[in-house]
Design a binder for these strands. Structure first.
Lengths: 231, 231
DNA sequence: CGGATCATTGACTGGTGTCAACTTAGGTGG
DNA sequence: CCACCTAAGTTGACACCAGTCAATGATCCG
């Protein structure tokens, strides 16, 4: 039984706008689920039976072409909403990349609840509009940017999401990549080898450091931004 | 003064769910505007002051990188909603590619009205979710597909939007491209030359015909779908 | 320590981009 | 109505970025 009042994403998930008793109704409809790294919660092309909130861990959204080429469509962090509300088909798979915890609803239950709680629907709308903006930015990345630019954009984006509170211009930013090279390639429309070469290149130019293969240190934010075509 | 009851997109735009008197309120807030081909309604990076419905004509959404590389983010057809509701910045430009007619609202007015009319907000949510699905499909195109596949996908997509009612498997599909080669390139992440070569190639293989440079006839739907990686 | 997985590096290929010439279509004005 | 001009599209030659294939190196985990 989900005790929503103690939920780690109580204040940041789509549930944040719910009153105490509405929260109770959602709580009864929701179900806490634990996923192991690699486990897939929804499959591309399936009926959209589930939606939910990411409580903990990282998940990826992916879609593949018939011959197996994979495209990653996004990364879901804690408090992100996942799944296709108000639709019959899930157009992409959702897979845990780390062990993860999610709070799921049967889609039909969620749709009903959302229809009755305008605040939830409004919050979902704002999230969806924000994601749409984000996707459009990625379209620019995939349609127009070079390999170096793509990797630089990715690193800046990860830094922003994983270290949201670094203020000082000069402080080093250090974070752990939530995904490996293969997934980075699938996200950026590059091969694993090209991603690797770009990272090597940025390291050789002293713009970033790679203390271990999952960690990134940004030495020169300005130069990285310039690589990303924002300079 | 917009006479909404006679609006060509009365039944298909976001207004379709409004009752007669709600429609009247929207009608007073909205303003019919005529755009000449090439005229830009909203500029990337501007404050989001306007939203609206496309009444007639075709518009394109675009964003550019600092050095001028343009990416088209989508095409807006009659009854499509344009602009960024519930947000402060417009992240992309909206430009008429044909002479066009739009019905615009001050964004703040629209936001207020939408907040008060749950059906409108719900409709906007469904549209936005649909567009998000669409964008994700384009991410696959831009991230993973070859030039031939991209052009084939584009032609199939255009056929679906412009000839929605062709039933028979064998009937020829003929339509006029709403955009030129440059815009096709900007949409597909290709150069104008590559687009041209792919079209030439498809024509030489007798899969399509090009009676004039803005018209396409699809001779072999199955083969085109195969080119698009859906076969 | 040994095996599996992931990442890096190198050599080579090939698909698109780039640059430039040419063709076609459309519009304007004499 | 034709001549011209411009913009749009096509075609060709060539270069280069990123993909492919293959070998090597680093980590992790049993």
């Amino acid at each position: 039984m989900a005790t929503c009042s103690q939920c780690p994403v109580r204040e940041s998930s789509i549930c944040h706008s719910l009153s105490a008793d509405a929260l109770d109704r959602f709580g009864r409809a929701g179900r806490r689920q634990t996923l192991l790294a690699g486990q897939t919660l929804m499959w591309e092309g399936e009926d959209a039976l589930l939606v939910g909130n990411v409580v903990d861990g990282i998940l990826k959204l992916t879609a593949s072409l018939s011959d197996g080429r994979d495209q990653m469509l996004g990364i879901a962090f804690p408090s992100d909403f996942i799944g296709r509300a108000f639709g019959t088909k899930t157009r992409h798979s959702v897979t845990a990349v780390t062990d993860a915890e999610v709070c799921t609803f049967r889609r039909s239950d969620f749709d009903d609840l959302a229809r009755r709680h305008a605040d939830v629907e409004h919050d979902l709308l704002k999230r969806t509009l924000g994601e749409l903006d984000q996707m459009r930015k990625w379209m620019q990345v995939l349609g127009k940017m070079t390999a170096t630019e793509r990797v630089a954009v990715f690193l800046i984006e990860m830094a922003a999401r994983l270290c949201p509170d670094v203020e000082s211009e000069t402080a080093l930013i250090r974070f752990t990549l939530p995904i490996g090279r293969q997934d980075m390639g699938d996200l950026l429309g590059l091969t694993i080898e090209t991603v690797s070469r770009q990272i090597t290149n940025l390291r050789q130019r002293q713009i970033i450091g790679t203390p271990d293969r999952r960690s990134i240190v940004i030495y020169d934010r300005r130069a990285l931004a310039a690589c990303a075509g924002m300079g």
